[in-house]
């Protein structure tokens, strides 16, 4: 009890000092050295219970043990994470507000929304990459489709479900069918589960969904995997060819990263990165990745920026080349 009181007083003093930070900005160096002195808020731009939320929470616990400060996870769902990204951009760049950023917001959504609503990852400091989630194209067994050639050879118009506009699911399918010359109509659903249901129920012929969403149905024989859109065969689906092997250029993944506001001191970013690396090393976290069929992508900020900016450019070029319009007709 007695021990807590001075600590509380100290915190108050520091908080007050923080308020006057504008007047004496030269103390930022020492403040960074002492980081973290209080709880860190981790924003999640998706609903609680979704993949991104679970990933953030799986990371938060071990990292906060290393930081010796709690990491409080706060969900700010909306617009594929744009709501949270906007809030992060406006937060103080002091390392006390960070966010789990989804790659599709940085490199796929900009293809579908007006330029002024697109989020640019270069306006943030990337702490670390987290992991990648691969997409697999699945077909209803009744279609008889087993591979892309089969779809092409069927010579009929097909319908495919997507998990929404401006998602990797939409981008992968539309790129594949454009390159294969298949007359295909996209039917957007709201998320992976309904898109999967539409395939199982035969309302659509095929859909691209994330590995973890489809694995169970594939194993049960209720859905046939056609191709994955991974760079190389994911360890979780060694028997399914990649789109590249089938002869198509559709390198699309969902990817996630921990991100801080632009201008967060380098020492703070480094401290956070060390903490998350502790999380990556935990066996429980590794098991979590296996269980959710996630491929680790624990690269540093510069590498991640290179990956994501590269993806955006590649997709822009591909979309232009094949005259695809992600926002409807």
């Amino acid at each position: 009890m007695n021990k807590k009181l001075p600590a509380l007083g100290l915190a108050t003093v520091l908080a007050l000092a923080g308020c006057g930070g504008n007047l004496e900005s030269d103390d930022s160096g020492s403040a960074a050295a002492a980081y973290p002195e209080r709880a860190v808020t981790m924003l999640i731009g998706q609903d609680a219970g979704g993949s991104t939320d679970l990933i953030g929470r799986a990371l938060a616990d071990p990292a906060s043990a290393d930081l010796k400060q709690p990491i409080t996870v706060q969900n700010r769902p909306g617009a594929n994470g744009a709501v949270a990204a906007k809030e992060l951009a406006a937060a103080k760049p002091d390392g006390y507000t960070i966010m789990v950023f989804v790659g599709s917001l940085a490199y796929i959504t900009p293809l579908a929304v007006p330029a002024d609503q697109a989020v640019d990852i270069n306006n943030y400091e990337v702490v670390t990459g987290i992991s990648q989630d691969d997409y697999v194209l699945i077909a209803n067994p009744k279609t008889g489709f087993k591979d892309v050639q089969g779809i092409v050879a069927a010579k009929r118009p097909i319908k495919y479900a997507t998990t929404g506009v401006g998602t990797g699911s939409q981008l992968t399918s539309s790129l594949l069918f454009a390159q294969a010359g298949v007359d295909a109509t996209a039917v957007p659903f709201n998320g992976g589960a309904p898109a999967l249901t539409a395939v199982l129920g035969g309302q659509v012929d095929v859909a691209a969904v994330q590995l973890g969403e489809a694995k169970e149905q594939i194993e049960a024989g209720k859905a046939v995997p056609i191709v994955t859109f991974a760079e190389k065969r994911p360890t979780y689906m060694p028997d399914t060819p990649t789109a590249a092997e089938a002869g198509y250029k559709v390198p699309v993944q969902q990817s996630r990263a921990v991100v801080a506001p632009k201008g967060t001191p380098e020492e703070v970013v480094d401290r956070l990165r060390t903490a998350f690396q502790k999380s990556f090393g935990e066996q429980a976290y590794k098991d979590f990745n296996t269980q959710r069929l996630l491929t680790p992508n624990e690269v540093d900020g510069a590498t991640l920026l290179q990956q994501w900016n590269g993806s955006l450019q590649t997709y822009k070029d591909l979309v232009a080349e094949h005259k695809i319009n992600l926002s409807g007709k």
């Binding site: 909306g78 007006p114 929404g164 709201n190 409807g328």
Partner: peptide, 20 residues
């Protein structure tokens, strides 16, 4: 909210809170 099919903005008044 944002149209699920075209991602066009509908009655959102440019407010991101209304995008969904």
């Amino acid at each position: 909210g944002r149209d699920d099919f075209t991602s066009a903005e509908r009655f959102t008044l440019g407010n991101l809170n209304l995008a969904d």
